[in-house]
Design a protein around this nucleic acid. Structure first.
Lengths: 214, 214
DNA sequence: CAGAGTATGTGCGCACTTTCACAAAGAGCG
DNA sequence: CGCTCTTTGTGAAAGTGCGCACATACTCTG
């Protein structure tokens, strides 16, 4: 039954908002493993995350029963289950487009490793940059993008180009078969229904908070 | 009436989820201004952002009446109104804690300027780094943080330190009077009710998408 | 092994969000 | 100026999400 529930989860349409919280739980659990904590109650996890324990339990219940009544959750077990649910019990290859300052920071970011992702190719359209080394990758010409993405069967793209170029880059990635895009350009892009986009826009977050300031 | 509505907006508790969408609208409008578009209908804006036009209209209606029936919205006017609502018709000073790779990337990020924010001070606890120049700032010792934040009356802090140090840094910022924190460390932190926190965790966004992959 | 204590998983109702759909308001044209 | 066309702003309806509260199940102690 638990197994059945887990495999049906995607068909059963787990709410997006729930999926969005799973990485938060996973992040917290990973730290607890580091700290040597073996067991955690939804109550305590909730306090750490500033949310209600019922929400955590209900979120997890979409995917199965992971806790032991009277005890709580085995930290390592739950972490591994969440990794499996989120498909990060493997490593996903990503291509990075844009080798400017931002692209450099992303390529050198140490936080991907160990959490399920890595950059395997970098592209830029500036001839000055093409051929240079960036982290473990040689910077390639944008025109090579379609072939590379297809050959390597990459499903995730990171966009780190100026806003004006972002939609164009996204169209290229989508045409090449990419199904998930992490967009650092401060602009909303349009993609087909079967492609996912997430935005990294620190300024948008800051503005959200500045509303409440003063 | 419009004016009244605007000034009452904060007391009237505009839903957080609405406030969170305003920066998205502002971002899109800023681009339209650049592109020379003068007028926009909620319909067209909605298509660009992949949402419903009714939602845009209802969101804006929390703050006043900005459109002209039969015409749509004056792009520049609406942009300026949103800037005022979000309090970014001024420039907010921010302190950055952490001068590692990530801190460097943030300090050199050109996207803050022009959208209402700037970094005015950088701190690190590593004696090797203290005193060095980073962007326009000299890196200061963490022990100077409380005095500096208070003297400069800074209300926003950016955390770019390892996860293990994040809660400690946040506590320091809060004690010094910071009311908004942008946290790049991949860990949830605890703050008093009157302090706002937003998280930048690219991996969390990636995991959210990898759930749907394969 | 029984009884006390603890924490899960979930049905239910409330609250919040989104969408629908339309009256009202302005633009433009003849 | 009146008629048509467009698009806003918004009540009301539909749809989602959240937390309470409790039955259930497991642990631990004596």
């Amino acid at each position: 039954m638990t197994q059945e529930k887990r495999s049906e989860a995607k068909a059963n349409q787990v709410p997006e908002i729930v999926v969005g919280r799973l990485p938060i739980y996973l992040r917290a659990l990973a730290h607890m493993v580091d700290e040597g904590q073996r067991v955690i109650a939804s109550q305590e996890l909730a306090e750490r995350l500033g949310m209600s324990s019922a929400q955590i339990r209900k979120d997890l219940s979409h995917f199965g029963e992971f806790g032991k009544q009277g005890m709580g959750y085995d930290v390592i077990y739950l972490r591994d289950q969440l990794r499996a649910i989120l498909n990060v019990d493997r490593v996903w290859d990503m291509v990075l487009v844009g080798a400017g300052d931002l692209g450099h920071a992303i390529a050198n970011y140490g936080g991907f490793e160990g959490r399920g992702f890595r950059v395997v190719a970098v592209f830029d359209s500036n001839p000055q940059k093409i051929g240079r080394q960036l982290a473990r990758c040689k910077i390639r010409d944008m025109v090579e993008l379609p072939d590379t993405v297809r050959e390597m069967e990459v499903k995730i793209g990171i966009v780190a180009v100026p806003a004006a170029a972002a939609q164009d880059v996204v169209d290229n990635l989508v045409a090449a078969g990419v199904k998930a895009i992490l967009n650092y350009a401060p602009i909303s892009v349009i993609v087909p229904d079967d492609v996912h986009v997430q935005y990294i826009d620190p300024v948008a977050h800051l503005q959200r908070m500045s509303y409440y300031l003063e």
